[in-house]
């Protein structure tokens, strides 16, 4: 695979799966077409981010090494937008 693709690892440990990652398996379908060849989405084994006190933060997704807690398709898209365009959505801040 192309080395400069953005790597999206969706934690499919049972906790993350139960608390929202199950809905993220269709993430690719939610991405704008022009992003689809820029990302590499993988369902990965437990990232071990959900220790007892962080249970409320699941599901976790890792985007280019950065851990996103309470990940939703919208939060991932926001993060991708920043990585791809180099700016936050809604213009420069």
């Amino acid at each position: 695979m192309c080395a400069d693709k953005i790597k999206i690892d969706i934690c499919c440990g049972t906790t993350c799966y139960l608390l929202g990652a199950a809905d993220l398996v269709q993430l690719e379908a939610k991405l704008p077409d022009e992003w689809k060849d820029k990302v590499e989405i993988a369902a990965v084994p437990c990232l071990e981010a959900c220790t007892t006190d962080k249970l409320g933060q699941a599901p976790f997704v890792r985007v280019n090494g950065e851990l996103i807690p309470r990940a939703s398709a919208e939060a991932i898209c926001e993060c991708l937008f920043e990585l791809i365009s180099g700016q936050t959505r809604g213009g420069a801040r």
Partner: peptide, 8 residues
């Protein structure tokens, strides 16, 4: 999940 059993 509570028993840390993963499916993969």
């Amino acid at each position: 999940a509570g028993r840390n059993i993963d499916l993969q």
